[in-house]
């Protein structure tokens, strides 16, 4: 009875035609000559569904992150429709800039912190209804259709990455539904990723020229992010918890 298997199809033959239409969108079939069929998959970069072979992640280079810049935060807020209303304790903060001052050397650096998209997410373990879940490609999300707003995931998250929506919401983005009484967090801009794009924060950071955040598939050794992870020393937050986050940091 977990929420995960709720994707079973409703019964009834009427779905066969719809399924045919759906498959037709992804697979173009052309009969070139009798017996010779050309089948082309895709057509765009979009995946038909999340790919279990992938593990999406971020690499954040604190050495390149400008302490006075908050382009990633603004971009996330614009993209997903959450707002700073001047109440930091109750406002949603899908991503926040953290300023770090070394206690011994006084060196100041900064880095963004968001949902770390753990491989072993505590929020998913503790969620009583299974509303917190991890997609096969490693993105951790909240299913707001089954979230009851108990906030146990917020108790469990080591990164304070989740926000509870304390007030009525309207004017949401179509791709980022959010409503009073449910919990939310960074979605890794899943609506963009599913269409072959990159998260808004990554794009915004690149636009400033800092390029402190890189996005990519950790499982693909040829990806930029995997190469850098292999080449330079990096760390994750709270490594003691062995959660294997998808978000990595360098030069902290």
């Amino acid at each position: 009875m977990t929420g995960n298997n709720s994707t079973t199809r409703p019964k009834g033959a009427e779905f066969s035609r719809r399924d045919f239409l759906r498959s037709g969108a992804a697979v173009a079939t052309a009969t070139l000559a009798p017996g010779v069929t050309l089948i082309a998959f895709g057509g765009s970069q979009a995946q038909a569904r999340a790919d279990a072979g992938k593990r999406w992640g971020l690499l954040i280079d604190a050495g390149r992150c400008d302490p006075d810049c908050s382009a990633c935060v603004t971009a996330c807020s614009d993209e997903n429709g959450w707002k700073d209303t001047g109440h930091p304790e109750t406002d949603a903060q899908w991503i926040r800039k953290v300023t770090l001052k070394n206690k011994f050397t006084g060196h100041v650096s900064s880095a963004p912190v968001m949902c770390q998209h753990c491989e072993e997410p505590p929020c998913v373990d503790v969620c009583p209804t299974g509303a917190s879940f991890k997609r096969v490609d490693g993105i951790v999300l909240v299913d707001k259709h089954t979230c009851i707003g108990c906030r146990y995931c917020m108790m469990a998250c080591p990164f304070s990455a989740r926000s509870f929506i304390h007030e009525p919401v309207n004017n949401q983005k179509t791709h980022a539904p959010r409503g009073q009484g449910t919990v939310e967090s960074c979605t890794l801009c899943v609506h963009r990723v599913d269409n072959g794009g990159t998260p808004a924060c990554v794009e915004a950071c690149a636009a400033t020229g800092n390029e402190a955040i890189i996005f990519g598939d950790l499982n693909d050794p040829t990806s930029d992010i995997a190469k850098r992870l292999a080449e330079y020393p990096t760390s994750s937050l709270r490594p003691d918890l062995a959660l294997n986050p998808g978000v990595r940091y360098s030069n902290l």
């Binding site: 994707t7 409703p10 719809r18 759906r22 969108a25 999340a50 490609d137 999300l141 179509t174 269409n195």
Partner: peptide, 24 residues
Amino acid sequence: MNLMRHDRDQTMRDGNREVEASLK
């Protein structure tokens, strides 16, 4: 309601964006 519920789970849980029934 069934079409939309079916496709919402497809979209959200499985990342299938090529569905027919959506509020959008």
